[in-house]
Design a binder for these strands. Structure first.
Lengths: 264, 264
DNA sequence: CGTCTGGTTGATACGACTCAAATTTGGTGG
DNA sequence: CCACCAAATTTGAGTCGTATCAACCAGACG
């Protein structure tokens, strides 16, 4: 069992921004909203790479929020086939409202070592009840998560390997960019080729060859867990990437906090 | 533009049950909850088969609830490829909370002629604010919708044609069964082979051949828009169907209305 | 060092696609 | 009630994308 760490220790310092900046892709938050968020995420634990945060069948007891590291949402078939149905990056909630369900119907596994905040249902209620901006931003988060899942369905159903991989890489880059963890076409990229295979419904052999092709076409570089996108326009065109589904343009700005809202 | 019909006319009579029975897969509702639901869905319109209820890019103005008929949620690529990312059956909400987003990132199209209730955001707020059972049931609906989307991702990513089609047919049967529209392995089934192809990421030619195979294996019959499942156990085994993700077992029963709750 | 995980490569097989055409079904109007 | 038309289904032949199986290699790690 991973260690459960209490209290807002010094390690917390870097964690607030990831959450806040994710939600601020939707609406600007007040300093107050931000501190409520980091207060709510004061209990956290670390999960080692390649271990589950929570497993299929478990009863969800709290909401998980990834503060640091990458995770995957995956499902497994009885014969061993595995599908990564979502990639979770810093700032993402794993399972908003999931405590309504009795059992997890999928697992969440750490890709890298993970720092996850654990928020109780009560705390979630407290957080949203008095803060409409946060509540709306969380709903937005849910809707975007659902939109991403639909786009993955399209990706798997209609795009072929070359387009499909490209689309996935762009999505991840843009999502990281939205939380300040990617710029100039460059970002950390801890997924193995096998992870990419499980996320795209291909074999790792084919992912390998397709990745070579992408490199050969001078579209990207990918080594040492670092992705460098070389030609975003061409990649977007060939993968028919439409950014709509990420709903990134401050759609909730009518909810924006006043720029200089006094602290309570 | 389809006709917009006002008021709880006689046509409304049959509509309440679909919604209520969907939500009652989660928690039993009081007569009061039920009448609030049917009050909320008193404005409805009809949509002809093969026309859009709402299209990608549109601004969502209200929540749609399908009272009668089947619809599909679909996305389209610039080169014409289309993927049905979800099937919507009577009792399903199309887009809970969607009004938070500025633009639809996908379309909803009628498969058969449709009767859809249109509920304003205000009405949704009114409906849930005073009725925790309904609110929880709606959250459950959202979570199950998301779980289905994930299962589709798995289905497309890992199952091959024969398993994949089987899995889809079982899912639809079970979902219809949950709202009282399927029994004894039999149900209406208005999808064309082309629809099935777009929902499974296969070509209609291959769907045709696979369907023949399923019939040849005496697993099902499918003609004249009627599906008859002949051997559910074998179909579940071969498609590795795990009913977990549908969360059908009255998981919210602690929220159940008292059996003889007096009407207000 | 040996071991392990992740990446790379080659040869071969097969599932699903493409294209094309024929056939059946269901709906519509005469 | 039949003739007609469009939509949906069925079938065949040939091709292609991706899987499979099997090695081999490189770097990380204890």
């Amino acid at each position: 069992m991973p260690l459960l760490t209490h209290g807002p220790g010094p390690t917390l310092v870097g964690s607030g921004p990831a959450v806040a900046s994710k939600l601020e892709a939707f609406a600007r938050l007040s300093p107050d909203d931000r501190s409520a968020l980091s207060h709510a995420s004061r209990y956290f634990r670390y999960v080692d790479a390649r271990r589950d945060v929570i497993s299929e069948g478990d009863e969800p007891r709290h909401v998980h929020l990834v503060l640091e590291g990458w995770a995957s949402r995956y499902k497994q078939l009885p014969d061993g086939r595995r599908e990564i149905v979502a990639i979770i990056v810093p700032g993402d909630f794993c399972d908003l409202n999931i405590y309504i369900l009795k059992h997890m119907d999928h697992s969440i596994g750490a890709i890298t070592r993970l720092k996850v905040a654990m928020i109780s249902p009560d705390e979630m209620v407290a957080l949203t009840a008095q803060r409409p901006r946060i509540q709306q931003a969380l709903r937005w988060h849910e809707l975007v998560t659902a939109a991403i899942q639909r786009e993955w369905t399209l990706n798997l159903g209609q795009r072929k390997a070359y387009e499909r991989l490209t689309h996935l890489l762009i999505e991840l880059y843009l999502r990281l960019n939205a939380v300040g963890r990617a710029q100039d076409g460059r970002c950390d990229f801890p997924l193995t080729q096998n992870d990419l295979a499980e996320a795209t419904g291909l074999t790792s052999v084919h992912v390998n060859r397709t990745l070579r092709e992408l490199r050969g076409d001078r579209l990207l570089e990918l080594e040492r867990k670092q992705l460098q996108i070389l030609d975003m326009p061409r990649m977007m065109a060939l993968s028919m990437f439409n950014t709509n589904y990420l709903h990134l343009r401050h759609e909730g700005q009518y909810l924006d906090a006043p720029m200089n809202e006094p602290a309570l």
